[in-house]
Design a binder for these strands. Structure first.
Length: 568
RNA sequence: UGCCCGAUGGUGUAACGGUAGCACAACAGACUCUGAAUCUGUUUGUCAUGGUUCAAAUCCAUGUCGGGCAACCA
């Protein structure tokens, strides 16, 4: 039955329809996609959509998906990013599409830079066909000669060099005879094309820079348009799926492949709209400023939409994938409400999280009719959604802590927690009644003195009494302390940068709150991989800052909170 | 004022010439030892104007609005 369900939710989008069509026609012997990030930054939630699309297609159609470092610009790239990309991709596809992951002969990701020799050969082929030439125009002149979208460009004065001269010059470029920018290799297409990308685009530029993967082997580096289509070709990619901004590059992608007389089937490019989540920022540059300005603590700050931040926040790969699937794949540029993401997280965590009692903002409660030296242990279920998760025991004693929010001296209408003279049920324990409110000299409530209906504990004779409110609690004597980091959206506005606004002006001042929580003692033995639901408060995961002496929890997300919206 | 792409409730997405559906959000109710979850229900939509057709969200035309493209970035 579950397979029926999974079939019915199999996403059908226009790209999958195309692939399905190709599979039906037997157009390719095997479907091969790729995920090709440039290692110049950290992966984020937008990349997750692309990963899920590419690996998802490979998975659904029995193909593979190559992880490829699109590393053709040594000036911007670094192994630090290569390593983080590998870790992030692994995290997201483990136990889901690991089998689809295509790696090179040494079990490593593919690197565009591994094709530099082959790419160079293709460039020489193009020159020999009279379809590429070495141009001596400076970068500024190249720009001027290109014209504008509504105005044709002019031919470079170097456009008609002979094949032999071009071959000679290109080999000198490779040999390091020229400084950066002195000349470039260009495709000879059409300087009057309405598509500016077809106006003799650059294929190679000179960069006397060491490359993180190829070291100092090269001083000329291919540009994206030349390297990408051919890397796809070399790897046997069938469907090269990228975002919308590359749509106008597609004619160039095809031109290069089609003008090389290549023997194998050519890859085709397809474009989709990238993910734009509300209430966050995904731009690499802005992410860097937030890290550098200390707005967040680092690339893995749990408030960030980076995959490392998302992972540290405790969001599971399953939840992220579910979200990526829900948002769909189209060519319509849209703003995706972050609530969809939050729902996917809650949905996932609700099913797997172990329930625990913990108090974030404690208020002392004394049960005056409960003996001082007495301790009872009450049974509590670990997960009502999953009975096999078992039960545990929670100690109860005369002095407790409850959540400050769960008491109101002058309660608003429909408040069904604790109030003077009112009753509330302590989850898994007794129904208590508030007899007395004790305040300090400032009028701040410091303690509640209550009496318990001692027959009302779970299973007891009066346990069935209708009590509207049930609250969580911990035994003061047994509670353990933990740091709880409470996260909220980083921005107060759906579109932080709407109309050119500076995102710094719409930062959420309470995107991080740190409190010392009091937790039930079973939380002493926590597992890093485990997710917990602190009942009525939200989902939590152990942070890596935890030490043997100090527990640190990250709140992944709150529970849906209807009351806070109702309350005046 | 060039070329390319797009437009379905508040948001995202489906319907492939034949009953506008799903999810999120919102609201109301049921249930509840989590104001969660679950269940039930409600509100809200085909950018505009023409055309083709027995029939148009879907095809055509025009317009409007939005986006992308002029790095020796990807």
């Amino acid at each position: 039955m579950s397979s029926d369900i999974s079939k019915s939710v199999t996403p059908a989008d226009f790209i999958r329809e195309i692939v399905a069509q190709h599979v039906a026609e037997n157009k390719y012997s095997r479907i091969v996609t790729r995920f090709p990030p440039e290692p110049n930054g950290y992966l984020h939630i937008g990349h997750a959509k692309s990963i899920c699309l590419n690996f998802g297609i490979a998975r659904e159609f029995g193909g593979t998906c190559n992880l490829r470092m699109d590393d053709t610009n040594p000036a911007k790239e670094d192994v630090e990013y290569v390593e983080s990309i590998k870790a992030d991709v692994h995290w997201l596809i483990q136990d889901w599409a690991e089998q689809q992951l295509g790696l090179n002969a040494s079990g490593q990701p593919f690197y565009a830079s591994d094709y530099f020799e082959a790419l160079h050969g293709f460039a020489v082929d193009l020159i020999k066909k009279g379809k590429a030439y070495v141009c001596d125009l400076s970068p500024a002149d190249t720009d001027a000669y290109r014209g504008a979208p509504d105005r044709p460009g002019r031919n470079s004065p170097w456009r008609d060099r002979s094949v032999d001269e071009n071959l000679d010059l290109f080999s000198k470029m490779r040999a390091g005879a020229f400084p950066d920018g002195a000349c470039s290799l260009r495709a000879k297409i059409d300087m009057a094309s309405p598509n500016v990308w077809l106006r003799d685009p650059l294929l190679y530029r000179i960069r006397h820079v060491a490359h993180h993967h190829t070291g100092s082997a090269w001083c000329i580096y291919p540009l994206y348009d030349f390297a990408h289509c051919l890397s796809d070709y070399l790897e046997g990619i069938t469907h090269s799926i990228c975002t919308l901004e590359f749509e106008v590059h597609r004619p160039l992608y095809d031109w290069i492949l089609e003008n090389l007389d290549l023997p194998k089937t050519l890859p085709r490019q397809y474009e989709f709209a990238k993910l734009i989540p509300s209430h966050t920022i995904v731009s690499k540059r802005k992410l860097i400023s937030m890290v550098q300005e200390g707005i967040v603590s680092g690339w893995d700050d749990p408030r960030l939409p980076t995959l490392s931040g998302i992972r540290r926040r405790g969001i599971t790969p399953n939840a992220l994938r579910s979200f990526a699937t829900k948002v769909g794949v189209t060519k319509y540029i849209s703003l995706t409400d972050i609530a969809v993401y939050e729902h996917a997280i809650r949905d996932d965590l609700n099913a797997i999280a172990l329930r625990r009692l913990a108090v974030l903002r404690p208020l002392k409660v004394v049960i005056t009719n409960y003996p001082e030296d007495r301790v009872e242990e009450f049974e509590a279920v670990n997960n009502p959604e999953k009975p096999q998760a078992g039960k545990r025991l929670i100690p109860f004693s005369r002095e407790l802590f409850i959540e400050r929010d769960d008491f109101e001296e002058t309660p608003p209408p429909k408040f069904f927690r604790l109030k003077p003279g009112g009753e509330v049920r302590l989850k898994y324990a007794f129904i208590i009644k508030c007899d007395e409110v004790i305040k300090d000299s400032n009028g701040v409530v410091t303690e509640l003195r209550c009496t318990a209906d001692l027959d009302s504990r779970t299973g007891g004779v009066t346990s069935g009494r209708k009590i509207k409110g049930t609250i969580h609690w911990v035994s003061a004597r047994h509670a353990i302390q933990a740091e709880a980091r409470l996260y909220d959206r980083l921005f107060t506005e759906a579109e932080p940068e709407k109309d050119g606004r500076d995102f710094r002006t719409v930062l959420n001042p309470s995107s991080l709150e740190i409190v010392t929580a009091l937790c039930e003692p079973s939380l002493l033995s926590t597992a890093a991989a485990e997710r917990y639901q602190f009942e009525r408060l939200g989902y939590f995961v152990l942070d890596r800052d935890t030490t043997p002496n100090k527990l640190v929890f990250n709140r992944c997300i709150t529970l849906k909170d209807t009351w806070s919206k109702v309350k005046p």
